[in-house]
Amino acid sequence: MDPILTFIVVLIGFYGLSTSSNIIKSVFMVTIIESGIILLFLNLGNYQGGSIPIFSEQVTSIVDPLPQALMITTIVIGSTVTAMALMLSIKVFHYYGSIEWKDVLGREELKL
């Protein structure tokens, strides 16, 4: 496992987030960044020869269980945050008539 290959996934997510043209695509990119960061945390706790963190008498060394416990809660929270962003995007469509960033942000009443 190479942490650098995992970090490249996060960077691709950042690139997509800054170049995406509509709101739905930005939400997709947040999901990708989140998956990459979870994988990065699990990479840090993992090492060669460690077994899964379940106790039994034969096991002598385990991988670090702490990042795993944190990442389970991250997945559940991330799903609700994604759902909330999508619900907001439905509201944006019915208000502005479009979900393209250039239509939503480039409006005349927003230009001060």
């Binding site: 496992m1 706790g45 993992n46 963190p53 991988v63 795993q68 389970i72 997945i75």
Partner: peptide
């Protein structure tokens, strides 16, 4: 799973490839 984290894998399968 290859990173020895089966707990996280179950959560990922159930949420991010079914509900999301």
């Amino acid at each position: 799973v290859l990173n020895s984290a089966p707990d996280v894998a179950i959560a990922e399968i159930a949420i991010n490839s079914a509900i999301i």
